[in-house]
Structure formats: C-alpha cells, structure tokens
Write a protein that binds this DNA or RNA. Structure first.
Length: 594
RNA sequence: GGGGGUGUAGCUCAGUUGGUUAGAGCGAUCGCCUGUCACGCGAUAGGUCGAGGGUUCGAGUCCCUUCACUCCCGCCA
C-alpha cells in the first residue's frame, strides 16, 4: 500500500464502509463543534468529510490546524445517517472517522481563501497562482484544457496527421507581429527570434513530403494583450496538408471542431455545416470579419437614400457628399420601447467616439411616417424605399450611423452587439461557427498609401494563375480564410502559394524586388524551387477553443500560469534583470535612461 | 502610445453634501458548543484609506501629479 493513501478523496463510497483507509490531501474546511470536529479533506479527485471527537488524543491539535495544510489521515470509513448525507459531494454518503493524522505540508496564513466563491483581484491571484489553481472552477478549467488537447491529438492521429516539433529558436521574420528576440552567445550581435507561428516550417514539412502535419504549437508574439489574447505566448493547433484545396481543409477542421465542441459542451451548434461568408459581405452585414452569428441583427448600407431629394437630413447628406456612407440596423417591433432605450444607445455611441446614432421608428397613420428626432426629414416615399431595402416593417425602428467607411464599420458593428444585448437577442446556449472566405490579397496602407499584403504573403491568389491581373491588385482575392465562433476569431489559414514565379510577381506588387524576396525569405523560396506540392493549412487557437468550452470571458481563466497585461509573471518575477556577467557573455550593454 | 474603470484591514467590500475615535463579512488569535457540510455563539488583534503634493479650521471624500491592476482603441491573425 502507498505510504500516503489507500484511496483518493473522491473515491470512497457506501461499499467501502468499515474499511480502514489512508487519505492525504488539503484541509479544505473545518467545522468545529467543540467536542466534535469535521474536516473536509480535498485533493484533485474530490472531497471527503473526516470526523474526530474529543475522545481522540489528536483532537485538540487538529482543532487548531490551518486551512490548506496538507495532512495524511488514517481512519475508518463509516455510513452517514440519512439526515446527514450530503448530496453535493460524491463521497457524501460516507465519512471517515480519524484515528491518526500527520502533517505533510504546513500552511501559513493564506493571502486568499481557496474555499470561496468570491472573486479576487488578478494581482493576488497571479502572484499566488499555485493557490488560485486549487480553486474549483479554475482547477476544472485546466483539467478541461488537458482533456481537450488530448482529444484533439487523438482525433488528428485518427485522421492520419503526423505530429512534429519545430524549432523554438529561429530567425526573425520581417512581416507580421513584433518578435521576441533571444541574443546569441556564439554569434555576438546576432539574435534568434521565437516563432510567431511555425508558418514557414510547416510549409517546409510539406515540401519534405510528409503530407499531413499537426502540432500543438507554442506561438510567441510581442504585442499588447486583450481579454482573449495572452501577452507573449499562446497555443495553436497548427496543421498543414498537401495536395488539397480550400474545401479539403474546411472538411477536416469542421469535423474536428464539431466533434470537440459536441464532446466538451452541452451547448448546441447553431450550424452543423458552417456557413461561408465572403469577407466583403461580412464587413457590410456585420461590420466586422468576426461576426457573432447568434446575433440576428443585420446591417444595411443605405447611403443611396441620402442622395434623394425628398430626404432633407442635411448633416448626413453633407457627409455623404464628402464620401461618408450611411449604414443602419433595423430592430423588429420596437415602437413601444421607451425613449430612454433609444437615447441610451445614442449616448453610448457618442462615448465610443462616434458622432452618435440617429434613429426613428416607422409608423403608419394615413401615411407612413417616421417618429423620432430625425423622422421629419424623410418623406413617405423615401421611407417606403428604405423599408424595401432593409426589409423593415411598420413598428420597427432603424438606427443610423454616418461615417467614413472604416469608422462606420467599427461603430455600427459595436452598435449591433450593443443593441442585441439591450434587446436580449443573443442565445447564450449556442455556438455559431462560420467561415469567412475570399480575403483580399492586398490592401492599401492608409498612412503610407502603399499597397501591402493584407494577410499572409504566402497565400495563393484566386483565379487562373496565368490570368491574374496584377494591375488591379486590390481586386485580387486570396484562398485565405478564418473560422469564427460567437464573434471570436478562432483561427485563420490559407492555401499557400507554392509557385516561386508567382510569388515574385505578387511581392513586386507590394514593392519588393526579387532580390529583397530572396534575401528575406530565402529558406521558403529556395525550398519551393525544388518540387513543392500544392498545400494549405490552418491553425485554430487552443486557448480560445478552451475558453469557449469553459464559458470564460478571459483567456487567463484557461491558462495555467498566465502573465498579466504588462507581460509580467508576478509569481516567477519575469521578466527580470540579468547579471553583468550574463550581459557580457552575450555581448550586450543596457542603455541606461538618464 | 491613447481612453475608461478600480485601488479603504490578510481577502471581499461599505463609507452620505468635506465634520468627532474609518466600519461589515470572511480569515487570524482566544473562549463556549457532539451532527455540521457557507455550522453556530462571544471576545480580541489587525488600517501610511496605493504614493506624493495642494485647497481647507478640518480630506478616505475636492483638485493636481504619479504608481499598480484591469477593460478598450492603436497593435496583433
């Protein structure tokens, strides 16, 4: 028998009554009745109620024991009487009468209680993460994460994918996010970079003929954090396949995501086959390329209405003449909503930095009229046209925003979320997946006015390869796609461009000469010149998948040892200063600020 | 880099128009209690009100600066 336990704390049942048992665990809770003491002993597997009375010589010592002390107890399993059964815990039909005990690990006064539903500041939780992780919800989240990863791994194996590791110390890449850099001791003045993703390696694996690759890959990006974005590092299910088209990737990923979400959540999938929404359509209908499809509201472009003579809303008309657009959201049957409902949304929009949201409600007396602060500016005919365009009906309300296209998309997209929340339109018990497809290959950088790759320079452009019109680069679409769930971007991927000649051409559009491309992407270009298969892939974010499954709004709730928003690990005290010797070895000096 | 929120006991929080000695629950310490499972009851200790400056007879409360945490924009796929 183990020195520490014969059973774990979630194991004992009625069938074990009268057995002698040895349990080890943390003192979760004490209930001291003076002459009778209950101790809830907790480990990874559960909680067992242990009991001791004053007849036992250990009673007074156990009475004083600190919560969260790790102890070993020796005792006998007994039945609980009917009135004292606890249905909330799995071991609730029995309890253990303590005979002897031993302290295995003592505990100082706690900076935060473990057994409590209270919320604690992030600061204290991260500093004492090892205590925080004992708490039920987050402990279960981390176990869920482990199970999800195991499941995904076995599904990928079943689908014939091979798991490979790729280098962690690699070279800095010129495109994309900021790199984390690691100085090289043996090569003074030179730096490794931690990979933002194993992008080039996975393509090289395809060129090497391995056909299907995956990895639960750590990715490092030195960018600022968000609630759904860890600073520093995160994990992707990185995968790549040879001899495939976009649809082949979709099939694999859809199956994997459906299986995973059905296995680990009770929520229903809104679509078993994910809808495919072109990027341009998504920007108009939802104002974003990561739409929450649980939200039934749709955005309509109604710029044209403001060119009509019988619409006299001059503020918007003026803006439209200078290139602004007008988009709107229709809310069904909201004519009886109080004025405050509308005004709060308008006020909120102003707080978001927009010029506000105009609105009116469509009513019918003898004629169709618009009721609301700006209603009088619209003729009955104009309203009819508006209703046709937006499928609005009598009794519906319409919210308008007028801005330059990019700001407009941002505010109207936020408004779409906000209004749906106010009207309680979002079914929280659904997962709504979709594909966003047909991303443009290039975009204009608004600051420099130059053409640049909108996404990944290695993506394959759409259309017949020898007929691509490079004189209209902004019209070129790419085999580039995202998968989105409930408004969270889970993943993006692409069919890759495996043809060096075509790649040079595309790079030249973005202002790179052949020479530059050879320099910056020598590994890739070189490899593609020696017989590369057509290939493509995707990389779903593991942390975000677990976040959705655990129903958490913050990625730190599914990350074992996360950093704070300033990319510091408060427990390990990273990043930290290093010694003069270390600097010297690395051939580095620190510039002191005054 | 910019904007919002928060900061009061070990933890979670209350603290009114500026007004006496800054409170509660949990935790800690001590005492009482043999069936609790958020056990109960009583007592005690515990505070640089994030920090610095200012206004005022008087500041937890008002003003300025600054720091920390967090959410968002920028950034990031």
């Amino acid at each position: 028998m183990s020195r520490y336990r014969s059973h774990n704390c979630g194991e004992l049942r009625k069938k074990d009554v009268n057995k002698k048992t040895l349990l080890s665990g943390w003192v979760n809770k004490k209930r001291d009745h003076g002459n009778l003491l209950f101790i809830d002993l907790r480990d990874n597997y559960g909680i067992t109620q242990c009991i001791i009375d004053k007849e036992n010589i250990n009673f007074s010592k156990l009475e004083k024991i600190q919560l969260e002390t790790v102890i070993k107890i020796e005792g006998k399993v007994v039945n609980r009487s009917n009135e004292t059964i606890n249905k909330d815990i799995e071991t609730g039909e029995i309890e253990v009468i303590i005979n002897k005990y031993e302290i295995l690990g003592s505990c100082k006064e706690l900076p935060m209680p473990v057994f409590s539903d209270q919320e604690y500041s992030e600061e204290i939780r991260l500093k004492y993460r090892f205590i925080d992780l004992r708490r039920k919800k987050i402990h279960e989240n981390i176990i869920l994460r482990s199970k999800v990863i195991s499941f995904i791994r076995s599904e990928m194996n079943k689908l014939g994918f091979l798991e490979f590791q790729t280098p962690i110390l690699t070279s800095s890449s010129p495109e994309g996010a900021r790199d984390f850099l690691v100085p090289s001791r043996l090569n003074p003045g030179k730096f490794y970079a931690l990979p933002q993703a194993p992008q080039q390696f996975k393509q090289l694996i395809m060129v090497s003929g391995f056909d299907k690759y995956f990895q639960i890959a750590p990715c490092f990006r030195d960018e600022d954090a968000r609630a759904d974005r860890s600073p520093g590092e995160f994990y992707q299910l990185d995968l790549e396949m040879s001899f495939v088209e976009q649809e082949d990737i979709f099939k694999v990923v859809e199956k994997l995501l459906v299986n995973t979400f059905e296995k680990f959540s009770n929520k229903k999938l809104m679509f078993s086959e994910f809808p495919k929404i072109p990027y341009a359509e998504s920007l108009i209908k939802y104002g974003t390329d990561k739409p929450d499809l649980r939200n039934p509201l749709i955005i309509n472009d109604i710029t044209e209405i403001f060119l009509r003579k019988d619409v006299s809303f001059e503020i918007f008309k003026k803006l439209v003449n200078t290139g602004a657009k007008v988009r709107c959201i229709v809310t069904k049957n909201t004519k009886n909503k109080p004025r405050s409902f509308f005004d709060n949304i308008d006020k909120w929009a102003k707080e978001q930095g927009a010029s506000g949201l105009a609105y009116f409600t469509i009513e019918k007396d003898k004629e169709i009229t618009a009721k609301g602060p700006i209603g009088k500016f619209f003729s009955s005919e104009a309203l009819k046209e508006l209703m046709k365009k937006t499928k609005a009906e009598i009794g519906d309300s319409i919210f308008f925003a007028c801005e330059k296209e990019k700001e407009l998309e941002k505010i109207i997209s936020l408004a779409r979320n906000r209004i749906a929340k106010d009207l309680n339109l979002i079914n929280e018990n659904l997962f709504a997946f979709c594909w966003i497809v047909d991303y443009p290959m290039f975009q204009i950088n608004e600051q420099t006015n130059k053409i640049e790759f909108s996404h990944n320079p290695f993506s394959m452009p759409q259309g017949e390869l020898n007929k691509i019109d490079l004189t209209k680069p902004l019209d070129i679409l790419a085999y580039q796609y995202d998968v989105v769930c409930n408004g969270i971007e889970l993943s993006s991927g692409a069919i890759r461009n495996h043809i060096p000649d075509l790649m040079y051409k595309l790079f030249s559009v973005a202002g790179y000469e052949k020479k530059n491309v050879d320099e910056k992407f020598s590994g890739m270009i070189n490899a593609l010149s020696y017989g590369a298969p057509p290939h493509g892939g995707i990389a779903p974010g593991i942390d975000r998948i677990v976040m959705l499954l655990a129903e958490e709004k913050n990625i730190r709730e599914v990350t074992m040892f996360p950093m704070n928003q300033n990319a510091q690990d408060l427990m390990m005290k990273a990043p930290s200063e290093i010694s003069e010797n270390q600097l010297k070895e690395l051939n580095l000096t620190i510039k002191k600020n005054k």
